[in-house]
């Protein structure tokens, strides 16, 4: 009896928390006219995918989606590749300044974007790459790299030193030991880090707002918001459909790779 009551309470709280997102999905499949019913209907009287169709074929949504995918993939690949080598160096090598560097990484991980964004904006203008996806990839490394480096460093600290030592005694060079032994061990950590970096880039808003102002280079975040602002009267069903579509990659990651997400969390900012 107590169990049932507790379960009921717990699930009520869970559903209240999830309600905004559930409401988002429901709204996105309601016909336009049903949206402005007073009082609103909870379950749609009629389910329509009209908004999704319009979103995909009558708005630049697909361009934004493509931009977001290119942007997030490039940032993730670049950052994770560089950070994996860097983290390996921070964990397994000894050289002057190594500890300072690790502290600096943590420091930059906390740095507010608004401080960096104006000089970065000037830099992009100066480099002549403003208003392009490239400028965003460069800018995104400023928050993704410290993050990935810190995360991977914690993962790699969890790999015993003896493994690398054994590989060295067994005749491997340091680079061979890295590829033969460290890299396979770090793989779950690399996957976690990639997912987090991807999500961070996918969700980023401020840099995209400042650095890009043409639809051809806009990612989803600023793109969808510009649809909201530009349209004469706000089409909520369209925006909800866009929100659902934007969250699809996250839902996929969530459903398939959740264990990597929670693992990354433990290693990230919370624990050393």
């Amino acid at each position: 009896m107590k169990r049932v009551a507790f379960n009921l309470m717990a699930w009520t709280i869970v559903l209240v928390t999830a309600f905004p997102l559930i409401w988002m999905v429901i709204t996105s499949v309601k016909p336009q006219f049903e949206l402005f019913r007073i009082p609103p209907t909870f379950w749609p009287e009629e389910i329509t995918f009209e908004h999704y169709r319009r979103l995909l074929w009558e708005t630049p949504f697909l361009t934004f989606m493509r931009n977001s995918l290119i942007l997030s993939f490039s940032t993730t690949v670049l950052v994770v590749a560089v950070a994996t080598l860097g983290a390996h160096s921070l964990v397994r090598f000894r050289y002057p300044g190594r500890e300072r560097l690790a502290q600096l990484v943590l420091f930059t991980y906390l740095l507010p974007s608004v401080v960096l964004i104006l000089p970065l904006y000037l830099m992009m203008v100066w480099l002549g790459v403003a208003n392009s996806l490239l400028s965003l990839v460069i800018a995104y490394t400023s928050f993704a790299l410290p993050y990935a480096l810190w995360l991977l460093r914690s993962f790699m600290q969890g790999i015993p030193d003896d493994l690398e030592s054994a590989a060295l005694v067994d005749g491997a060079t340091r680079m061979e030991a890295f590829f033969d032994v460290i890299l396979p061990q770090a793989l779950p950590g690399i996957i976690s880090t990639s997912l987090f970096t991807f999500i961070l880039s996918w969700n980023e808003y401020l840099y995209a707002l400042v650095l890009v102002n043409t639809d051809s280079a806009r990612p989803l975040t600023t793109g969808v918001m510009s649809m909201l602002v530009s349209s004469f009267n706000i089409e909520w069903s369209l925006l909800m459909a866009a929100s659902v579509m934007m969250s699809v990659p996250l839902i996929i990651i969530f459903a398939v790779l959740q264990k990597y997400l929670t693992r990354g969390f433990g290693a990230g900012g919370v624990k050393g």
Partner: peptide, 13 residues
């Protein structure tokens, strides 16, 4: 030389 480690250091993968 060859070495046996206290932790054995077997390559887990």
């Amino acid at each position: 030389i060859a070495m046996v480690f206290q932790s054995y250091a077997l390559y887990p993968h």
